[in-house]
Write a protein that binds this DNA or RNA. Structure first.
Lengths: 194, 194
DNA sequence: GAGCGCATGTAAAGGGTTACATGATTCT
DNA sequence: AGAATCATGTAACCCTTTACATGCGCTC
């Protein structure tokens, strides 16, 4: 249950409404941990009942901003320093890559070209954002400087995947004359990956 | 619903039982798309009712191996070439990285060192596996060669993250004398990431 | 024959998405 | 006045994990 801690972490920056938080999950943070608004609103209610956040203010359209409590701040900190990191990953494109052998070489090549473009574009958007941070356009607080590290991770990941997609297009698998003549749905059993 | 297609993709290599498939999800493939055995068994039953797979054989301890049908093979192929790639990602460590500013600098530094080690080790395991593939120890079929691409993606991602963790340890955020004296749970509102 | 690993499942709970609904405020 | 956007929620469904359960076959 990382959403809980994600919300606490965002509220540690200052009060925010469910709507604010949902927007942040659609933008920056959602690219590494997606969340839709119904999940966010119900989690906020749970956090509130648990005393980890409390109502900060009411605004115009029955807007309700929450503020993190001391208990809440302690809980994010505990999570960050004590809980073990969950290293499991969900990335559909990497799942697909295990089955590339089932694709027509030309199809595969154009798919990889699309992916390369996607990752390059994303990386370049992130680089622009990182540049602004480096120029101090977001202030120079410890928070801002630390969050620069988060952006760097996303940049490097997307660049690595763009490079991978470019590299893969040069593979001999792309220029296989014998596609369709070999072993689909074969008798197959070879050992297994680590 | 990518598990459905993941199972079809694996069965396209040849017949396998739920147990076999669960093992493969705990090993290689699970590192990009985790799945536990109850989910796998129930999905296999659904796939079987849908006519995308069928019983291939029964073995010793009421082992049931399934085989992919023509309809099933067509469905994986359709998925691979027609369905849009879902680019959403779930990576807890990157979620955490948005909240590094809440951590004690020393805590953070040692956490980053742990992460670096984890990613390096994983990358090196994968590189060993890739090396074996390159030496032809897994055959030279199109499938084997194409799956080499999948392994390369995982290698590059883990290396990128190891590099990132190393880079982050050198950040000025690690050597911040003023931690705890500044703005936690501040009034904060600055604009937002892309 | 005791114990381990194989092999499959069920039940319950939790996490997450999609569709639907609705009212309030602001903008044109 | 009408449209767009803000803002919150419910209900239904799907996906995923965890815990529990059970029996078979092999090995020592």
């Amino acid at each position: 249950m990382s959403l809980r801690h994600g919300l606490l972490g965002l509220l540690a920056e200052g009060p925010a409404s469910g709507y604010d938080l949902a927007r942040r999950f659609q933008e920056g943070i959602g690219s590494v941990w997606p969340a839709q608004h119904p999940q966010i609103y119900s989690e906020l209610n749970r956090l509130s009942k648990a005393g980890l956040i409390e109502v900060d203010s009411h605004g115009p359209r029955r807007r309700t901003a929450y503020r993190i409590t001391d208990a809440g701040l302690a809980e994010v900190r505990r999570w960050l320093s004590e809980d073990e990191v969950d290293h499991s990953v969900r990335m559909e494109i990497l799942l697909r890559s295990f089955f590339f052998w089932l694709m027509d070489p030309d199809d595969l090549k154009s798919r990889l070209a699309e992916e390369q473009k996607y990752f390059e574009q994303f990386a370049s958007t992130l680089r622009a954002y990182a540049g602004a941070k480096d120029r101090g356009e977001w202030g120079t607080s410890r928070r801002t400087r630390a969050q620069r590290i988060a952006v760097e991770a996303a940049i490097r990941m997307n660049e690595a995947l763009a490079d991978w997609a470019r590299w893969a297009q040069e593979s001999d698998v792309m220029t296989d004359e014998n596609f369709g003549k070999g072993e689909p749905a074969a008798t197959g059993s070879e050992p297994e990956a680590p």
